[in-house]
Amino acid sequence: MSGLMLRESRDLRPVPRNLPKEVQISPSASTAEIYSSIAEASGFSIHRLRITKGSDRTVVPNSKTANVDGTGLKGQSIVHVKDLGPQIAWRTVFIIEYLGPLLIPALFLFPLRPFLYYNFDKPLPDPSDLQLLVCGLLMVHFLKREFETVFVHRFSNATMPARNIFKNSAHYWVLAGFNIAYWVFRPDAAAATTEPNPNLLYPGLALFVFGELANLNAHLVLRDLRRPGTTERGIPSGFGFNIVTCPNYLFEIIAWLGVYLVSGLSWSVLFFVTIGGAQMASWAAKKERRYRKDFGDKYKRKRSVILPGIF
């Protein structure tokens, strides 16, 4: 048995006073047992705790496959325990994030329409068929997101700090919800026309359908790489993965470019695509670096992480 000496981390809020000064853990035990032992003694959820080695401050993983001895912890090793604060499940976070832009388009287009566009001549014209179509595309997209959140995605981290829910939701509620809905559904918007441009409408619909289906396929591939209840990953392969690191992001952008065309080239949709694309590009670059680090020569390196031949 190894005796791990515990210390509170001082750079964040302290852990409860009943934190034990020492826990006895077998060197062959999983590192998850360190977390469960400290959580049981302190009365805090495992997900609120971060444990780092006193020697180099590297994080001790909460893993059922990694053992204590493999982390370099020995008898009387010191670990630092940090309270991360109230947590919220990542699945719940995504459900809340997508709920706003799922409901806002229909609210703006119907019950809130007289109040949002009060300064236009009365009576307000009914929404055009094209505006109804854009509303439908937005709702289909975020319904798909909600479906994937509940039935497809497997999360490497169970929770995130609860205080971050507002920051995370703002991107979707404000940029994909309020911003797009207000401008695209205005009575004088390009999408208010009764004669849609077929050169924008039909290519836009084709891009949207292709992007959504290809994105779903990519998410299913990624889902199958991770066994339920684990954080282990494999090397993804299949449609799109031989071209870029993150084809799910590529297909997401393609679907939104379809919405952009159908909307009559609304700047609000393009703005959301640009901001979201920049963020996804950053995530994709980090994922490419992680694949190279984790899998070494087994991984076929990609020159483009999200946009073929561009980035």
Rank of each mutant, 00 (worst) to 15 (best):
T149G: 02
R13Y: 02
V244T: 06
F185W: 03
F44E: 10
P101W: 03
D121E: 14
G70I: 02
K286Q: 11
G238Y: 06
T52M: 09
P101K: 01
N18H: 08
K74C: 10
P125I: 14
G234Q: 12
N157D: 14
I34G: 05
F155Y: 14
G277Q: 10
W267E: 06
D129Y: 09
K122D: 15
G264E: 05
R227K: 12
R303G: 15
I78P: 00
D188Q: 08
D69V: 09
E97F: 02
L216N: 01
A218R: 02
P16T: 11
P187G: 13
Y117V: 09
Y35S: 02
S55F: 03
F147C: 13
R226E: 06
R57A: 13
T194Q: 12
K82W: 07
S237Q: 14
Q24H: 14
N217D: 14
A278S: 14
K21C: 07
A206F: 09
A176D: 10
T194F: 04
R50I: 11
S128R: 01
G276R: 07
L84Q: 11
S30P: 12
V262Y: 02
V184W: 03
H153T: 09
F166C: 08
L213S: 12
W183M: 04
A170Q: 07
T52V: 14
D56F: 11
L73G: 07
G43W: 00
V140R: 00
R223L: 08
M139E: 11
G177K: 01
P27H: 06
G309K: 07
K287T: 15
A32I: 02
H80I: 15
Y291T: 01
D294E: 15
G177N: 04
R227F: 05
